[in-house]
Design a protein around this nucleic acid. Structure first.
Lengths: 336, 336
DNA sequence: CTGAAAGCGCTTACAG
DNA sequence: CTGAAAGCGCTTACAG
């Protein structure tokens, strides 16, 4: 590889002068600079960042540790948002997978720390509590889409309570008084928060909470055969003496299934049933007819906000609730 | 930061001995090694990879350049597959976005080359031709999910022709003689290849190609209002004097829309209409009822294969067609 | 405006 | 089995 000395020789200067040129030091005569630049061009020279790093004692690298973020639909936007902001600050991301295997995880962390990352982002593909490796405390770190009760770190999570409230309010406003909720697994963070938003909206609308209207739409992950499904949930709701006229679905996948399953009861979403949901999966929500009104997961925004915080040198460890904007389409537009 | 010398001082050896220990040089007395290891532990020492890189003249980094791979549903598996294999080889990925902006792209490339990446992966989220930056030729590089006619590089792309053939054959086998094709934008690589697979399957089944049965389901990206849509495509097919009894959809999103739109004609997929598709979007295909039979995009496999090739030190520049396995569910099971 | 020296934190031969 | 020297490719003071 061609080094700064090769360039110096080619340009007939000292290598120090070359260093000045590549670092845009103004104290170089125009003529000298041009000569050096031509040599750089001619030799196709690129400064070795490892050498620079050693002298400067900084790597310009941010570690991005995540579970399946990149493969889950749209969760990759966490990465994209983080990358965008990092790039504005002339930082690059080193992306590693959080392996479940403890040894692998340790290796990945060691690798990042040996590369002297200037910061660490820990991100998950769904909103949940995480076990924070102690190493995160040795460099500036942030938590994205996840949180910890044991460690104090800046935390960026979706405002699921508010989203639950908004998803329900859209239906209350239309005059619905029997609003079903097909819930995610009840132990999931988002499920709890959204349920409490749902209750708040009911209360605000002067409606009593009826536990019969809250049904579970999914099983423990991967359990077969499933004891809980959208199908069983809907069956339960449809068996009520006073059926719901509106439905809040725990995620767009639930909503999609509900569109189909409700047809069995002769019920069309957007006609006999108002419906809202969460996620805004672009693969689903706009392709349903009628289009699905849903609260968007703010992946891009969380990624950006977290990286801005990290690179902005802020020190405050609080939790930021990132809004989940309602994406209003047609499915909730049924008046009662 | 604590360096090798601090460890040596703490352990009472020369720093050279410390270097031996961290590099697992067997020629160190057990006792000395233990002493050093304890000091490393005590000081929480981590070797500086920049310094190592400088001496070793290799970075252990592979650059992963892509367009929107991480945000497109499941295309992120390209990254995951690549990462998996890289990690087995003790390499890490540096992920950068291919900006449309020429200057940004150049910056990203420069950055990667300054970091002395040992290889480069260029990946796209859909199968298409790319303009390959000249810099890719200066280090071992591979193309994933994309190709170039101007540059010879190892190339890993989905076998779309074969997939088109399989998707059609599943329907021919069931006795269908009028098989519609709702095509992607006809200029798209996958559309052309799949069309030729469709024709091959018809021919093999002794069926004449009828251009009336091939309709376009999408417009140029982002064009509003759309001149072509699944709705218009279906309308065209349903207006034919001899309607199709089976449908090959250009992607799962088309299929999903078709499920809904066909209801307007009183036609249920899996009853009066057999249907196959491409992609295997896990968000869509299993959630439709009946479940969608579709040819899976082999993202994970392409990512793995490409990285194996890159790190395996192979030199052959040919193109590998990665199979798109048929994911057989219910939608095609309609006999004629 | 330009250059010679020292050093960042390691590893690679070479001695002993 | 252990150590002293040289050097990887840069930048940071310090001279001139």
């Amino acid at each position: 590889m061609v080094s700064i000395k090769d360039v110096a020789k080619h340009a007939g200067t000292s290598f120090k002068t070359v260093s000045r040129v590549i670092n845009n030091d103004p104290a170089v005569r125009e003529e000298t600079r041009d000569k050096v630049l031509r040599s750089i061009e001619a030799l196709n020279y690129r400064p070795n960042s490892a050498a620079r790093m050693m002298r400067n004692q900084k790597s310009g690298v941010i570690g991005f540790i995540s579970d399946d973020v990149v493969t889950r639909p749209y969760a990759g936007e966490l990465l994209l948002g983080a990358q965008e902001v990092a790039s504005e600050h002339d930082k690059v991301l080193m992306v590693v997978n959080m392996e479940h295997d403890r040894r692998h995880r340790q290796q990945a962390l060691d690798m990042l720390l040996e590369r002297r990352v200037e910061g660490l982002v820990l991100a998950t593909y769904y909103h949940r509590e995480v076990e924070v490796p102690a190493e995160l405390l040795s460099v500036p770190s942030v938590l994205v889409n996840c949180y910890s009760h044991r460690v104090q770190l800046p935390t960026f999570v979706p405002d699921d309570e508010r989203a639950g409230y908004e998803a329900t309010r859209l239906l209350v406003e239309r005059g619905h008084r029997r609003i079903g909720l097909i819930s995610l697994h009840p132990e999931v963070t988002a499920a709890k928060l959204r349920l409490s938003g749902y209750r708040r909206a009911l209360e605000e609308g002067g409606l009593a909470f009826d536990s019969e209207l809250v049904v579970r739409g999914e099983d423990v992950f991967g359990k077969e055969p499933a004891a809980y499904s959208v199908e069983t949930a809907l069956a339960q709701l449809m068996a009520l003496s006073s059926r719901p006229t509106a439905l809040v679905c725990g995620k767009d996948e639930f909503a999609m299934q509900a569109y189909f399953l409700l047809l069995r009861y002769g019920i069309r979403v957007g006609q006999e049933m108002a419906l809202t949901s969460f996620d805004n999966q672009r693969l689903i929500a706009p392709n349903l007819s009628p289009g699905l009104t849903t609260m968007a997961l703010p992946h891009l925004e969380m990624g950006r906000a977290a990286m801005r915080h990290l690179l902005g040198g802020e020190t405050d460890n609080s939790t930021r609730l990132i809004p989940m904007p309602p994406i209003v389409r047609e499915s909730h537009r049924v008046d009662r």
